[in-house]
Design a protein around this nucleic acid. Structure first.
Lengths: 160, 160
DNA sequence: GGATACAAGACTAAAATAGTCCTATATCGA
DNA sequence: TCGATATAGGACTATTTTAGTCTTGTATCC
């Protein structure tokens, strides 16, 4: 449904929370309480983020997690990649195998790949630090005309 | 998983096929055979597209479907909207209700909305006619640096 | 009036996601 | 060195979503 999984959603929350105090370690229990999420779920998110080297972990009594690098250098795309099971791409192929060879199929597929690349570009150009910023102006969500807010995202959202 | 449903995928195929002969009517059976898809599935897609006024239909013996308007004036976003159940948006809210009020939550949510808008902008700016064009240059799918092909999409993919 | 083709929507099966739990391992501190 | 704490990995169940089909109804043509 063209939606990111809840795990990814939680991931942005957890990462942002950790970004607010770059130095310290956060335990699963702490983060779960701060964000009002269940601990096992937060744990699952953090384990996946750890496997992708977006967070570091320390075991033991005073252990916990912290961002592996500054928030400015972590993109939303990287969080998505860490938490979505499937590889990035808006379509599976572009319909059933065997259909593309006929006529229009393959062009469609190639064009979907270009759309994928553009969408990924959007996600790659937004950093965790950006996600913490307040939104500068009211954006009407469905208006294409207003879809780029003048401030923070402006430069980042140019795809060329 | 940040993927469009198969119905949407099929929708782009079906619409493109119809766009190749703007005048004529295509029956479900014809389209199914041309695209090597099952007829009931193609039917489901076309009914949904019809409800959203992207195709017109004629019943009866020599009936069928045709694009409701020129391919240049139909965007991929409109096809997505017609065939995805849920309203457009990459995250459900941005985690559980009640979490956002605390600290970082709401900013994240607002920023996700801006990402939604940017992604939607990509889909809104690609027309069905664009989807029929051959891809001008090889684009390495995962390289952000090359993510905008110089030709056809170039102007369209600028989000500002 | 009968054949054809779309319209609406119910229904089943399969797949993906969400969320929890169990076992193992590392660290700290008494 | 032992026990408490906290992460690591991954299995597992339940839920939700998606895919695909089928049935009944209606419009059009000949």
């Amino acid at each position: 449904m063209l939606r990111v999984s809840k795990l990814t959603d939680y991931g942005t929350l957890v990462m942002t929370q950790m970004a607010s105090s770059p130095g310290r370690l956060f335990s699963v229990a702490e983060l779960a309480e701060m964000l009002r999420l269940n601990a096992p779920t937060v744990s699952k998110v953090l384990k996946a983020l750890g496997r992708h080297n977006l967070v570091t972990s320390v075991r033991g009594t005073r252990g916990g997690y912290a961002l592996a690098r500054p928030a400015k250098t972590i993109s939303v795309a990287q969080i998505v990649d860490a938490l979505e099971e499937q590889p990035f791409g808006l379509t599976e192929c572009s319909a059933l195998s065997g259909s593309c060879e006929l006529e229009s199929g393959c062009r469609i597929r190639a064009n979907w790949q270009r759309i994928n690349t553009a969408v990924r570009g959007v996600l790659s150009d937004i950093s965790l630090a950006d996600m913490m910023q307040p939104v500068p102006v009211a954006v009407r969500p469905d208006s294409v005309a207003t879809r780029v807010a003048p401030e923070t995202f402006a430069g980042k959202l140019k795809t060329q």
